[in-house]
Computed example of a mutant assay.
Amino acid sequence: MSGESILVVCAANVCRSPLAELALRRGLGADSTISVSSAGVRANPGDPICTVVAARHDDEGWQAHAQVHRAREVTVELIEQSSIVLAASRDIRGELVRLAPRSRDWMFTIKEAAHLGSGFSSSAHDRVAEYVAHLDRARSRAVPLTPTTGVRGRVRHLFGSRGAADPSSIADRHGSRGHGETIAEVEAAVAGILAQLGGHRRHS
């Protein structure tokens, strides 16, 4: 086994990050050498997964992981032991960078990874490490941060302008009328990442 791992992080670890975790597990397949886990920056340890996420698929693998999932807080150790960290939003990524600054080079938002990873393909055993290198190079080639452009300017260059919303983030709409939109955004970004990592998107 490669020992490579993906850590997905959101706020409470009950909706966005476990959805991405389960979707990545499902797409990579049971025989994948890449492990996937999730955590939250403000998790209430022990909270169960969102019921909407749990009911998203009825296959045995999805249901087994959904039933045993319990929210947990992210730690420096979890971050530093991961091959890549995928944050639900730029705000979450910022919190993770402050928590574990040495690991910032392998931290991306979920949407950022799906966007920057365009064109990546590898069948190597250490393909997550190659993927991170690809993402980091793509990020470094983006419009450089200047007093004029700032972070917002760079984000708009990467993703295009969509009003005040940050296009590289997936908003926390758990329990609100926009819950379905959040789920759709997570699933779309994960589908892109799976295509880049050589996984597959199952529709049933």
Rank of each mutant, 00 (worst) to 15 (best):
E4T: 14
G163Q: 03
S17F: 07
S89A: 15
P144F: 10
P167H: 01
P101E: 13
A195R: 05
L116R: 03
G94Y: 04
A87W: 10
V128E: 13
L96H: 07
H125E: 10
H203Q: 14
A23E: 08
S38E: 08
L24C: 11
C50M: 08
E95G: 06
S2A: 09
L99V: 09
H174S: 10
A114S: 14
A11V: 10
V68M: 08
L24P: 14
T109M: 07
V85D: 03
R93K: 15
G163Y: 03
H65G: 09
A64E: 15
R139P: 00
S169G: 12
S176D: 15
R127V: 13
R25I: 11
A39Q: 03
V143I: 08
V52H: 05
L194G: 00
R139Y: 07
A11M: 07
S37F: 10
S32D: 11
R152Y: 01
A114I: 04
R141W: 11
R102P: 01
E181V: 11
Q196T: 03
S123Q: 13
S82Y: 08
S103T: 02
R72I: 12
R202F: 11
V8K: 07
G198T: 05
D31M: 11
D136E: 14
R72P: 02
G150M: 12
T146F: 14
G160W: 00
G175T: 08
R152T: 11
R177N: 12
A43S: 04
V68L: 12
I84H: 05
V36R: 07
D31A: 15
A188G: 04
C15S: 13
V74D: 06
E185W: 05
S168I: 08
A138D: 02
A165H: 08
S161I: 00
R72S: 13
H115L: 12
V132Q: 06
R25D: 06
A20T: 02
G117I: 05
V53E: 06
I84V: 15
E21R: 06
H179N: 06
I183W: 03
V97H: 03
D172L: 05
R202W: 10
V68K: 14
V76Q: 00
T75C: 01
G192P: 02
S35Y: 07
A55C: 05
A43G: 04
A43E: 02
N44V: 15
I49W: 03
E130R: 14
D105S: 15
G27C: 09
A191C: 10
G198V: 08
R202G: 07
T75H: 05
P18I: 02
